[in-house]
């Protein structure tokens, strides 16, 4: 095996290990604060792992607002609790903070905000990230910065009109430093997304507005990493969207099969079973 493939295999292994660890840590957080959106925070794990451990994003944990950083906006803020262990692991804040989520005096809440080092914006009320990201993207262009803006939305979030105002805007302005990732877990709060507002074929919606679209399996961490890296390096004059097909509640069968996993409260025996599945 040549060096190149060996490196790839090592990275694949690293990303998969990190993804497993992040799921376990996210579940621990859920046990401490059951109000977090667990299922929504399990579908985007490989996406976050690829961004932060794969080397897609430039960042400096010691200086979260370092000018040269890539901006990452977790527009599905409530569904980004899996980012907490990642940020702590990378040194944005102490790992011990994870156990204090939503405790008095903690800066980690059930829904994140900008008190948390590493969070650019406050989200979790949906549909804001893409528009704010457009403003950041233009600001970076004016500064002649080569930093990129990554935004993570859910697919239920795409029902917000403000998302499409931003999608139209980014397409028109050919914001080539903007990369949107749709965590397409096909599940909103009360039902599967297709039973609420069916947006398929989703690729067409974006390409019609002038976006470059890639659609892949969002749980193949290495593939997500390679795709995001390519999209980041692609400076053709279009905003880019990665539609990552995922499973809401990934890793916990009780959640995966439940159309209402978003707000599901796991029973004690289900928690024990889930922990076994996540090992």
């Amino acid at each position: 095996m040549d060096n190149f493939h060996q490196k790839d295999q090592d990275l694949t292994k690293l990303l998969e290990e990190k993804a497993r660890w992040v799921r376990k840590e996210t579940f621990k957080i859920y046990k401490i604060s059951p109000g977090i959106r667990l299922a929504s925070s399990l579908s985007d794990v490989e996406i976050l792992v690829a961004l932060y451990y794969g080397g897609v994003l430039k960042f400096d944990p010691q200086n979260p607002y370092w000018e040269g950083r890539d901006r990452f906006i977790a527009s599905k803020g409530h569904g980004s609790i899996s980012l907490y262990p990642i940020l702590a692991d990378l040194g944005f804040f102490d790992l011990k903070e994870l156990a204090r989520i939503s405790h008095e005096g903690s800066f980690l809440a059930d829904i994140p905000d900008t008190r948390i080092p590493g969070y650019e914006t406050i989200n979790g009320s949906l549909g804001h990230g893409p528009g704010v990201a457009c403003g950041i993207a233009i600001g970076l262009q004016k500064k002649k910065s080569d930093a990129r803006v990554f935004v993570l939305t859910g697919d239920g979030e795409l029902n917000e009109g403000s998302v499409w105002e931003a999608v139209m805007f980014a397409g028109h302005h050919k914001l080539n430093n903007l990369i949107l990732i749709v965590d397409n877990n096909k599940t909103s709060m009360l039902s599967r997304s297709k039973d609420i507002i069916d947006l398929e074929p989703l690729e067409k919606k974006f390409s019609d507005f002038g976006w470059k679209v890639v659609r892949i399996d969002g749980h193949n961490a290495m593939n997500v990493y390679e795709t995001l890296k390519n999209l980041k390096e692609d400076t053709s004059g279009y905003p880019k969207v990665l539609i990552a097909d995922t499973i809401k509640g990934k890793g916990v069968s009780q959640l995966e099969s439940d159309a209402m996993s978003h707000s599901r409260v796991l029973k004690v025996e289900e928690i024990i079973d889930a922990e076994r599945q996540l090992q």
Partner: peptide, 25 residues
């Protein structure tokens, strides 16, 4: 290059403004 007609889209106008402001504008 410093004027943007965002179109008839006030929600996006405010969000784009917020993004620019976060970048120091």
């Amino acid at each position: 290059d410093k004027f943007i007609n965002v179109g008839i889209a006030e929600q996006n106008m405010v969000n784009v403004a917020a993004g620019l402001a976060l970048e120091g504008y």
